[in-house]
């Protein structure tokens, strides 16, 4: 009985942690959207900033991956 409560808590926690991935999705969309709106205003400067955009995507994505990792840890490793 006690073990199952722990299990339940772990699964609930995993579900909550997955919300963070949605946040990462919003963040990545925000980064790319803003890059695109800037790039359409000044297309000549866009090519030089693609690398910066990817770095930004990587940082935003990393936090989503962290929450995914927390979810996985709760599901499989706790």
């Amino acid at each position: 009985m006690e073990g199952s409560i722990v299990e339940m808590g772990a699964f609930i926690g995993a579900g909550l942690a997955s919300v963070g991935m949605g946040g990462a999705a919003i963040g990545v969309g925000n980064v790319v959207g803003n890059f695109l709106s800037g790039a359409l205003r000044n297309p000549s400067a866009a090519a030089g900033q693609t690398a910066t955009m990817f770095i930004g995507i990587a940082f935003a994505e990393a936090l989503g991956i962290f929450s995914f990792l927390v979810a996985l840890l709760l599901m499989f490793a706790v």
Binding site: A58, F59, E61, A62, I65, F66, F68, L69, L72
Partner: peptide, 16 residues
Amino acid sequence: VSHSIRLAGNMMAGHA
């Protein structure tokens, strides 16, 4: 930490 977990996490997540 973020450098390594980003890569491993991305690969693991997609495959899983």
